[in-house]
Simulated scan of single mutants.
Amino acid sequence: MYKLIAIDIDDTLINDSKEVTPATQQALEQAIAKGVIVTLATGRAYASAQAIARQIGMNVPIITYQGSLVKNLLDEKVLYERYVPMEAVRKVFDYCMLHHLHLQTYIDDKLFAREENQKLIDYTTLNRTEYYIEPDVAKLAAHPTPKLLIIDDPDYLDEIAPQLRELLGEDVHITKSKPNFLEIMHHEGTKGHALKFLAAHFGCDMSQTIAIGDSWNDHEMLEAAGLGVAMGNAIPALKELADYVTLSNNEDGVKAAIDKFILQPE
């Protein structure tokens, strides 16, 4: 019997219209009514994710910033937190300045960038997030952050990712949440680490957990979970390692997975 489900938000829980459908909402409510702990596991900031969690009626801790922050919804108590090492933060800012890359940082759950540009506007429109401009790079680089995000052409990001891994070493985790988003966290800031933490927090064995996602930043939690579910619209690499492939985010794939494994298990 599964006791804990962690669900990615973008292109997983929400459809292409950025909505949780009534059918998926009902399936989540039915799972919760059966005593299953349903949580979110997202690359989004807590401020962005908690709005969706509250809309669904969740009251449990949620996994945000790719796993760098696990925070209670009810009292907003921080349960798990990992910051990017400060030396790595400075190196990433220097690298991005040198190569004229768009870099975003998160300080006290607020999104900051050095300048306003189309990449920032598109990102914040997509995630419905407020943003703040701080032209002083030294100020931005001096603040602890759970996540740094570079936005650029997918092929170019694939080219620079190995350079950044070499530059930053073992202390950081680098992943892609979308083809044009390269994200840098603490090496324990993964959805897999956060899922293991939450399972222990609730006294669940990992065999009793389900993880559902669509992108490469979900692979650690799909591999860690007792049952790893890839969406029908997931990238091929995630489908290959998943235990099960459900329908797409536009076909209530999350509902289909909950129906199969929680509400109507064989």
Rank of each mutant, 00 (worst) to 15 (best):
P61L: 09
K18M: 12
T39D: 05
A51Q: 15
G35I: 05
R44E: 05
K71G: 02
T24L: 01
Q30D: 15
Q55Y: 14
K18H: 14
K18I: 11
I63E: 03
Q30C: 05
V60A: 07
G35C: 02
L73D: 02
A33Q: 11
S68R: 04
V70K: 01
A47E: 13
Q66A: 05
T39V: 12
V38M: 14
L40K: 06
M58I: 15
P61D: 07
Q66C: 09
P61V: 11
Y46F: 15
R54K: 15
I32V: 13
A33S: 12
K71H: 00
G35V: 08
I32T: 13
G35W: 03
I62R: 03
A47M: 10
K71R: 15
T21S: 13
T24Q: 06
L69H: 08
G57M: 03
M58R: 01
N72D: 12
T24E: 10
A49R: 11
R54A: 11
V36L: 08
Q50C: 10
Q50H: 09
Q55E: 12
V38C: 07
L69I: 11
P61M: 07
T42R: 08
A47T: 14
Q55M: 12
T21Y: 04
A53H: 05
K34T: 11
A33N: 09
I37N: 12
V36H: 04
I62V: 10
R44K: 12
L40R: 09
E29S: 10
V70Y: 00
Q25Y: 07
I32L: 01
Q26S: 12
T64S: 10
L28K: 08
N72I: 01
I32Q: 07
T39R: 03
S17T: 13
S17R: 10
A23M: 06
V60Q: 05
I52C: 02
I63K: 01
A31T: 07
R54L: 13
A31W: 12
A47I: 11
T24D: 04
